[in-house]
């Protein structure tokens, strides 16, 4: 197990470095640079000023040299300095990362728990009204864009019913502490987490249902019935466990999509996470910050995938045996 993890971590580091190099060039393919953005904001045209800014940001150096400086920094765990925000990149990301983790992990937990639950029920009562209702709702949530669900949620639960706050991480100016603060954050979290989670929940519901119906038809399930096991035990121990494999795989793959969805969710709900930081950095051509966010997001996706592989082995011991 340990050697497997070490091997995966090593591969992960190589992939991460490849991502850094690729993104370094991709970002620079986009027209415009930070000097152009900042000179534009000053509302004046001055060749010397733009030149000074480029020198200050190190953008006047040849591209390979800029890449070498950046990679050297990343290897020594220095993500650089954001000249746009006048702060170290690691500090800026550190301020935002907890909010994104809270949002994405909550959304992930909601989607996986309820997705598997609804999928199992739908499969158990396949062909009934209950199954149809779940399938239709799953299809609706699967088809609706995240920003639309978000806006409709705001309209219904904030504007019309006034049940939930429409934006932010906490009630600004309330200065709450302890449990009151936790409840306040939870209230603010409900809508963004549900919005982000609904799409994935719909996916897992459909996947679990389909997978369970397929497994149910297999010979070992018939054997289990022949052995006289109760339906509940067959469903839980034999059908569900085997049906979960594709769901777990999908969940691992979704870790990247989840972060992508977080960009939209964080923007609509003014949730102060790195998704928005990334979006702003992109618009402002804040190269170091953007690369820093990419590095962290890539590391998160790689970690999620590693965890998925480990869970995969837990769910199906045959895979460990094969490895």
């Amino acid at each position: 197990m340990l050697s497997f993890v070490a091997q995966r971590v090593l591969k992960g580091v190589i992939v991460l470095l490849a991502i850094v190099v690729l993104n370094f060039f991709l970002i620079r393919l986009a027209p415009g640079d930070p000097a152009i953005v900042m000179a534009g904001e000053a509302g004046a045209s001055d060749q010397v000023f733009v030149k000074q800014l480029r020198e200050k940001f190190g953008l006047d150096k040849p591209l390979p040299e800029q890449l070498f400086i950046y990679v050297k920094g990343v290897v020594s765990l220095d993500l650089g300095f954001s000249f746009r925000q006048q702060a170290p990149v690691a500090k800026l990301i550190g301020e935002r990362l907890p909010a994104t983790l809270l949002l994405t992990l909550t959304a992930f937990a909601i989607s996986l728990t309820f997705g598997i639950l609804f999928g199992t029920f739908a499969a158990r009562f396949a062909g009934t009204f209950f199954d149809t209702a779940i399938t239709v709702f799953a299809l609706i949530f699967y088809a609706m864009p995240i920003f639309w669900v978000a806006l409709m949620g705001i309209l219904l639960f904030s504007v019309t019913m006034d049940w939930l706050p429409s934006f932010g991480y906490e009630t600004v100016g309330a200065n709450l502490t302890g449990l009151a603060h936790a409840v306040d954050v939870a209230e603010h979290l409900i809508m963004p987490a549900m919005t982000l989670g609904l799409f994935f929940m719909a996916t897992y519901t459909r996947m679990t249902r389909a997978s369970m119906l397929e497994v149910k038809r297999l010979d070992f399930v018939k054997t289990a019935r022949a052995k006289g096991l109760s339906d509940a035990v067959i469903q839980r121990r034999h059908v569900l466990r085997n049906a979960l494999l594709p769901v777990v795989t999908l969940a691992g793959v979704h870790s990247g999509t989840l972060i992508g969805g977080a960009v939209i969710t964080e923007t609509v709900f003014a949730w102060p996470g790195i998704g928005r930081l990334m979006y702003d950095a992109l618009l402002q051509r804040d190269y170091n910050l953007l690369l820093g966010v990419f590095v962290i997001c890539s590391a998160m996706v790689l970690t999620f995938n590693l965890i998925t592989d480990l869970v995969y082995r837990l769910v199906d011991p045959r895979i460990e045996y094969a490895a």
């Binding site: 705001i154 934006f167 932010g168 964080e266 923007t267 609509v268 709900f269 003014a270 102060p272």
Partner: peptide
């Protein structure tokens, strides 16, 4: 208050 979305 920092609210990035115009509708929000």
């Amino acid at each position: 208050q920092i609210i990035p979305d115009a509708a929000a």
